[in-house]
Design a protein around this nucleic acid. Sequence first.
DNA 1: AAAATTTTTTAGATATATCTAAATTGCTAT
DNA 2: ATAGCAATTTAGATATATCTAAAAAATTTT
Lengths: 222, 222
Amino acid sequence: MKEIKLSFAEENYLKAIYHLSGDDEQAVSTNAIADTLNTKAASVTDMIKKLSNKGVISYQKYRGVKVSEMGQKAALQVVRKHRLWETFLVEKLKFNWDEVHEVAEQLEHIKSPLLIKRLDEFLGYPKYDPHGDPIPDEFGEFKSKPRVALGDCIIGHEGVVVAVKDASAPFLQYVDKIGAYIGAKIKVIDKVEFDSSLEILIDNKKTVFISKEVSENIWITE
Amino acid sequence: MKEIKLSFAEENYLKAIYHLSGDDEQAVSTNAIADTLNTKAASVTDMIKKLSNKGVISYQKYRGVKVSEMGQKAALQVVRKHRLWETFLVEKLKFNWDEVHEVAEQLEHIKSPLLIKRLDEFLGYPKYDPHGDPIPDEFGEFKSKPRVALGDCIIGHEGVVVAVKDASAPFLQYVDKIGAYIGAKIKVIDKVEFDSSLEILIDNKKTVFISKEVSENIWITE
DNA sequence: AAAATTTTTTAGATATATCTAAATTGCTAT
DNA sequence: ATAGCAATTTAGATATATCTAAAAAATTTT
């Protein structure tokens, strides 16, 4: 078993590719990576070659890339670190959930197995981060709660918010404003055919209209 | 007032120069910097030019460098972060004091004013780090406790360990072994003229012989 | 199936941070 | 005062991570 050493930039690329490939582990295109990382396709091609040489992705010219077994493990360790740090920032340092992403993007690259072990312990071995995403354990194992996007619910469906997809500050601030925090109870009241927007009831208290885009970024229990 | 943006490497150089210049703010030589950072003199010259252009040090060819007003402020913020992180690692994550330096070297470069503000708050605004070094506040202000190196004490002097100079793991482990932790009471029993080694009494319990080198790295109250 | 378009790659630059080897400057001892 | 040595700088490379512009391949449209 070889030691995989990745630079900050390499870790960022690998994580982006891991997230883009999704559960079905589809091949990821050069442009998709460039868009995610706000960089240019040419830069991606260069980096792809390096990651391929290190064996964390497999790459065929013009055919996109796939994350290898080894790459998945490495990516999950970065994800683990990111989500543990986000949890730390919210639980211990009283950050709002819309303030943590940028900082965690930096903290996730700190190299120290002991640090992560102790941080995990200090936080009480959390299973989910502040956005409801599962935190992989030291072996990369995790499980998501059964969930469905609000946009995919039928009228009348009732559930509790378990996660949000978009972790950007503007989106999370909006979610805060309407009160659809993690744990909030939501009932789908009505769906507008025309634009797929939804009318939802939050915590049995107030009714809110949300766009299709918003509805696709909030997950509730099935 | 200009924004000073420094890279990781630049911050490391600046911090090293700041530490090397000492209280008297002496000019620091290229070689001294190279030794501290385990790099080559040529690399130092390159970096010195960049730091000089950014105004954090003043530099005259062949004459060494001095830290500017601005540079001192920037250096102290890095020192502040380093020492707050070390405190966090020991106080909250139960690291030993000989395990924190390397990790803090990484953590000190994280850019987030909010993070440091909240960390400071979370730790209860500590004034000293686990090695007894003072933690600068957000304005760069700090004060050291009055102290004297064991090596400079006269026979009979008695005091409490307030700080250690060397922060390397081997040294700190040795200090642990003899029981000269911060807070331990120490009395200088005898001094050997020949090699300046010392016989000291620790916590009224045991007598230990320490070399000159060790005696220069442990500070006790005056 | 050929043409047009999009995607991806290559070629050649730029910027950072390093290095070795050679040249230069400063200091010291005779 | 100068010869020799030590410290410092310059010149020229290397490695990483980026970019723009042009070329090549794949895909889509006609």
